[in-house]
Design a protein around this nucleic acid. Sequence first.
DNA 1: CAGTGGTCTAGACCACGTT
DNA 2: ACGTGGTCTAGACCACTGT
Lengths: 241, 241
Amino acid sequence: MTSNKLRRQPLYEQIKSLLMRRIAEGEWQANEVLPSEWELAGELAVSQGTVRKALTELVGEGLLYRQQGRGTFVSDIASDWGDCSLVTPGLPDERPDVIACELLGCSRMNAAEEIAQRFGIRRAAPLLRVRQVWRLRGQTVALDDALLPAERFEGLDARWVRECGGVYAALQRRFGVRPRLQTEQMRAVTLSREEAQLLNTSIDVPVLSVLRLSSSIEGEPIEWRQRYCLTEQLAYTVCRA
Amino acid sequence: MTSNKLRRQPLYEQIKSLLMRRIAEGEWQANEVLPSEWELAGELAVSQGTVRKALTELVGEGLLYRQQGRGTFVSDIASDWGDCSLVTPGLPDERPDVIACELLGCSRMNAAEEIAQRFGIRRAAPLLRVRQVWRLRGQTVALDDALLPAERFEGLDARWVRECGGVYAALQRRFGVRPRLQTEQMRAVTLSREEAQLLNTSIDVPVLSVLRLSSSIEGEPIEWRQRYCLTEQLAYTVCRA
DNA sequence: CAGTGGTCTAGACCACGTT
DNA sequence: ACGTGGTCTAGACCACTGT
């Protein structure tokens, strides 16, 4: 490992960063096996134990997974639902059905004071706004409205989101950023007429509002997303593995 | 460490169990310092690295916390809210106000098929039912209905829950079990007349329903809790630290 | 200064999966 | 049989906290 003597970062942190960068650059695809701990240790000129510590942390962060006797692998691309899903109420361990995304549109707007502060950008800085609806067995079940700092993700547009099948997948493939759900705020609300129309429901049915803040693994705020879910026949499930 | 040769459990797992038991038995109180890694290693006749691995996992599980240069400490007692709280909507990093618990009552009932299966107990086995309301700045804001397998927690009653200030605190102090939120299912619903009365609201205001499953750290299912939150002026926040 | 946790190394052996 | 990750050891040095 080419480590300057004046380093303030532990070796294993440097290795983590290096591996994250190389994965982001596509050196290994999803579900592909990494070199063994000993190979990495040789290549980076550190001990196997140090490589191991770096890998263990990346496994904990969800970027990698291990299988004893086989190797260490790159995890699947992140979904816009993270560790959440829509399932039948009362059956918390049901396998969720595949949910389909329809991109309504990407637009640009200027950051209000509150949002700007949260992203650590100047007031009225450009934001990227992505609107999506989600369908389950043909029914529209959720409406998303995501805001991202546009200057941080210059070049992200409707084509990327559509081709990758979601905002998070696009961020990971285009920028190597793996979003991490930070907080989610749930409320029971009713919708405006426009939103109700998009969700194909009436304005007096109670709807679950989820306000989500996501960050990169390093803690940089990435996304502010307002989601509305129809929960008459479904439940928004948060799963802590 | 007195480890039989035929062990299937790694040393550090045995140490984890041992420490959990000793903490549960009250050998060290909350925020009290543990013996140093070297002392524990000597006492248990293992290497310091093995103790370290055990402690690291317990820190990850929230039972302990470390401070460099000072030592390793026992964490605070768990709250019935876990990593969730009620805060002002739109301010996800606001410090939540202290929430006060009022115990409505403890009763016993028999397990329906679905619940029995989930707890891995026989049908119609006895359940402990704990009902609570929560107050914030004098306002009633949430109603809880918790079910626990009564035979597993024989002796748990209203006195324990009241004195400890919550079900989870009682479980930890009385049985050394630290509950771990497994899944939470959110829905926007309306209340029955009885529930609306307890929450001091009307039956047509939308309310957040949270159905929670908790387990011990070992994975044993512990609790099934139905919670209703008033979210007109508050948001139910799930925080992933 | 002594004592704590934090990092890093080198080497040994075990458990598992593939060949 | 071989290569992988998983456990365990012993020893070194660093960074931080208290006295």
